[in-house]
Write a protein that binds this DNA or RNA. Structure first.
Length: 289
RNA sequence: GUGGGUGUAGCGUAGUUGGUUAACGCGCCAGUUUGUGGCACUGGAGAUCAUGGGUUCGAAUCCCUUCAUCCACC
């Protein structure tokens, strides 16, 4: 893998999650039924690796099942064991290990012994990085943090630790506290598309009427292109008018907000001050500590 | 000027053999969104049914007045 340029990931394009009747899981793989025309599409660890190799992303994820919340112990166990078997098959089918990092995904739902089992078995595969999957799927925040803090220390210290699907500022800070190195999420761009900005003072739903004549930037403390050039009122106008520029500007801002947040997190880690920063942030951002 | 049509929420419409809280889309207002497909999902507010009068137990619906608007003719 190369670490000297922006890293491209597969963006979770092959997750197996919450598709209900449109999805049939077997040991061999997963059959998806298109909701558009009913056509069937079969994915296996091998076929997914072939696609990932063709795409050429720097980081590619093993084909796994993200179990929904809540799930029984028995189902979670069987699913986790299958995900581990799939990871082995992915590794065997991976044709570009020299320039594409195949990460394993630790499953096990909200059962600690299953998390431990999953981590150990995947670490045995000696993959270049590991992810925590299957949390941030609708569970209470307490349970999220509990499993996060239990699982992260099980992961190799000398390899990237990736938490999948986390995007709110508070969860990102909690992830950093737990020892996570990287996250990815649809949230910043999804809420941008629906007219919402993340700021150092909490969410700003800029599409709301209260910003109609607000000629200040989305976030006064932000140094992004959007905040340096556009007002809330104008962005609101663009969003309301269905003008693509509006959600582009919001996406630019939200992504910058998160990278800025992580820059700050790194500084606080160096200063050994992350926990008090978390508390300070919660107060300012509007969460209960 | 004559004949005919039309007037229902901000906009576009549905609803008339007269019968309980007048429907829908868009817009508007708000909430949701955590392993993305670009604009989604869930709620909510808003109409003295152009106007004045009449018939009737009861009128958006039937009759007349006025106004507005559209079409044709002059």
């Amino acid at each position: 893998m190369r670490w000297d340029r922006p890293i491209l990931t597969d963006s979770g394009g092959f997750q197996v999650f919450s598709l209900g009747d449109l999805r049939t899981i077997s040991e061999e793989g997963v059959e998806f039924k298109s909701h558009l025309d009913g056509s069937k599409h079969f994915f296996s660890p091998e076929s997914v690796m072939e696609i990932e190799n063709d795409l050429g992303a720097d980081i590619i994820m093993a084909f796994d099942e993200c179990v929904e919340y809540p799930a029984t112990y028995e189902y979670t166990k069987q699913s986790m064991e299958r995900t581990t078997r799939w990871a082995k098959r992915c590794k065997a089918a991976h044709k570009r290990p020299e320039d594409q990092g195949l990460f394993g995904i630790i499953q096990g739902g909200f059962y600690k012994d299953l998390r431990e089992r999953s981590a150990k078995d995947l670490i045995d595969l000696d993959l270049p990085g590991y992810a925590i999957g299957g949390i941030s799927v609708g569970e209470p925040k307490k349970e999220f943090i509990d499993i996060l803090q239990y699982t992260a220390p099980l992961m190799p210290k000398n390899k990237p630790r990736y938490l999948m699907g986390v995007g709110t500022p508070d969860y990102l800070i909690e992830a950093a506290i737990a020892g996570i190195d990287m996250c990815d999420c649809v949230l910043p761009t999804r809420i941008a598309r629906n007219g919402t900005a993340m700021t150092w003072n909490g969410k700003v739903v800029v599409r709301n009427a209260t910003y109609e004549r607000d000629f200040t930037p989305l976030d006064a403390q932000c140094d992004c292109y959007t905040c340096k050039n556009y007002t809330r009122a104008y962005i609101r106008h663009l969003v309301k008018a269905n003008e693509i520029l509006g959600i582009r500007l919001l996406s630019i801002h939200n992504l910058r907000f998160l990278t800025k947040l992580m820059e700050r997190v790194k500084i606080e880690i160096e200063n050994d001050n992350l926990l008090s920063f978390r508390n300070e942030f919660y107060k300012q951002y509007g969460y209960d500590v």
